[in-house]
Design a protein around this nucleic acid. Structure first.
Length: 193
DNA sequence: CAAGAGATCATCT
DNA sequence: GATGATCTCTTGA
């Protein structure tokens, strides 16, 4: 049920695709929050200029050079935390950004954290999702095979998957057009169609 | 509803 | 010193 290390050690595009329909579980002293993943993006290796690790191994990116199945959490724009799942083998830097989930458990906690009553606005975007699930940089490097933050397979197949270019990476030159964003078709909880 | 501005800070040059 | 893997609010039809 809980996804094992071997799941994360597959190729990044496969992991990004297969994460759709899986469940994100976050244990916190306020309570547990659970969401069904409906949108992901792949950031693949040293060549991909949209991937932070394309600028080399630094204090921030070193986690991506480690083994799969660890959390890479960082802050963008001074406000928003982004949750990524490190993939592939040691020394191949890659990760999958979790962009949106459908709220499933702990919805009341999410409403308080997000200051909204609207289910569709709780976790429909990478920054919103982190706020709803109380994920911040303190979770950077956390082991997803542990007990605080992990993913579950509940045996639910995903009907149809759509791919698009990734969001917000116009600076990435030829890499910006790669169809490496994955969404569940017609799902109302994605960040944008 | 669509478009645009502003917020704010860790990270790398 | 510049720059984001974003969000929210305001503005104007």
């Amino acid at each position: 049920m809980k996804l094992p290390r071997s799941f994360y050690e597959q190729s990044t595009l496969d992991v990004a695709r297969q994460l759709l329909g899986k469940y994100l579980v976050r244990k916190h002293h306020d309570g547990t929050t659970v969401g069904r993943i409906v949108e992901t993006e792949a950031y693949v290796g040293p060549e991909d200029r949209a991937c932070h690790a394309s600028r080399g191994r630094t204090a921030r990116t070193k986690i991506m050079f480690g083994p799969g199945g660890y959390a890479y959490v960082y802050l963008v724009y001074g406000f928003h935390n982004m949750l990524n799942i490190v993939t592939e083998a040691v020394d191949f830097p890659a990760a999958v950004l979790i962009r949106a989930v459908e709220p499933v458990g702990g919805v009341e906690i999410m409403k308080v954290r997000r200051q909204t009553e609207h289910l569709r606005n709780l976790a429909s975007g990478p920054g919103k999702l982190c706020q709803a699930f109380a994920i911040d940089r303190k979770l950077n490097g956390d082991d997803l095979c542990g007990k605080v933050l992990y993913l579950e397979d509940r045996g639910e197949p995903v009907s149809q998957v759509v791919t698009t270019p990734r969001i917000g990476v116009d600076y990435a030159g030829p890499w910006k057009d790669k169809p490496w964003r994955f969404l569940i078709k017609d799902n109302e909880f994605v960040s944008k169609p």
